[in-house]
Amino acid sequence: MKQSPMHVWRSLGEVPPGFGPSAVTIGNFDGVHRGHLAVLGRTVQAAAAHGLRSVAITFAPHPLAVLHPERAPQPLSTPAHRLELLSYTGIDAVLMLEFTHELAQWSPRRFVQEVMVDALAARQIVVGSDTRFGRRNAGDIGTLREFGTEMGFEVDEVADLKGADASRRWSSTLARELIAGGDVRDATEVLGRPHRVTGVVVHGDHRGREMGFPTANMTTDSIGAVPSDGVYAGYLVRPGEHGEPAADPEHDTGERLPAAISVGTNPTFDGEERRVEAYVLDRDDLDLYGERIAVEFVERLRPTLRFEGMDALIKQMNDDVARCRAVLGVSSPA
């Protein structure tokens, strides 16, 4: 649980002089999944055990977006959402460094000395087994242990976490692959919460309302990796006390409404623009235009299909809603 307001620094110059001593961890933390939470939790525990401050070092944008934009992954969360998710872990502070070509040239030694030791007075460094840092990712756990002996800090390695089948470790890469394939149920296991896409509701073609299924259409620049085309059971989340949905459903103060969610181009009507739209079950009274909402993906019901006419589509949509009710445990209206 969050113990006090989390400090956020966006450069080394913002770290208060004399800060520390501290327990430090480092990572991209995209999506702040369950593997990340294990490392962050161990960092908080180490700080408490040794009377230290806990700090997470992360980067924005993603290093690959700077070094190899063509290989940059689709983000699971924006920097703002990442900070929000980190704030729920109990970490005392986050140093979110701007990743630049200049920073990419720092040697592992320079990074550890100037960031972890000089700025943060690290006494404990907690990392996952795949940690890499410094120019060309030359630094690893072995490097950290060598520097620790010289610079006065200890290194704690957190073992990989895996799912029930133990086939692959939980990672942002795995979560993205599952989401891209539409396997949002398994992505939930990795993330520790249902995956969300956030955006502003805009006007669409209004065909859904004509068919009895009014949908909220999200802007095409929605935040969060969009799952593969198909129909999903999930939730539409309206803004809470801070004016937009929280990044984690456990911290939402707004409405969370059961919904059938469609991702795709609407091939029955020869659509070309890929959209995310959600029909809130049994509600035709909602005016959501202009609101920033989130859609939360629980389970994929079927792939996107092309239907021969509106009657066939309406029949399928009724079937989709029935399956959606079953998945979400929502009864039919009286």
Rank of each mutant, 00 (worst) to 15 (best):
Q3D: 15
Q3R: 13
H7C: 15
V8D: 11
W9F: 08
G20V: 04
A23W: 00
F29T: 03
D30H: 05
D30G: 00
G31R: 05
V32N: 01
R34E: 07
L40E: 00
R42W: 06
A48I: 04
A49G: 13
L52V: 11
S54V: 08
V55K: 03
A60T: 11
L64E: 07
L64V: 14
R82L: 12
I91Q: 04
L95G: 09
M96D: 04
L97V: 07
L97E: 05
E98K: 10
E102P: 06
A104P: 03
F111W: 08
V115I: 15
A119H: 02
A122M: 14
A122G: 14
R123V: 09
I125P: 08
I125F: 14
G128M: 08
G128S: 13
S129F: 12
R132F: 12
R136P: 05
R136F: 11
A138C: 04
L144H: 02
E146F: 05
F147P: 02
M151E: 03
M151V: 08
D156E: 14
E157V: 08
E157F: 03
A159P: 01
L161M: 13
K162A: 10
A164H: 12
A166D: 14
T173S: 15
L174P: 04
R176I: 07
A180N: 06
D183A: 09
D183F: 01
H195M: 10
R196L: 06
V197P: 03
T198Q: 14
V200T: 06
V200H: 08
V201Q: 13
V202I: 13
H203E: 09
H206K: 15
R209A: 13
T215D: 06
T215N: 09
M218N: 10
G224I: 06
G224N: 08
G224T: 04
A225N: 00
V226H: 00
S228H: 02
G230M: 00
G230D: 03
Y235F: 13
L236A: 07
V237G: 03
R238Y: 01
G240F: 01
G240A: 09
E241C: 09
E241L: 13
P245K: 05
E255F: 10
L257G: 00
A260T: 00
G264H: 10
P267K: 12
T268E: 13
G271P: 11
Y279Q: 12
L281E: 00
L286C: 13
L286F: 11
I293F: 00
V295L: 15
E296Q: 15
V298T: 06
R302C: 14
L305T: 09
L305N: 08
G309A: 13
M310H: 01
M310F: 06
D311G: 05
A312D: 13
L313W: 05
K315S: 15
N318E: 14
R325G: 07
S331G: 02
P333I: 11
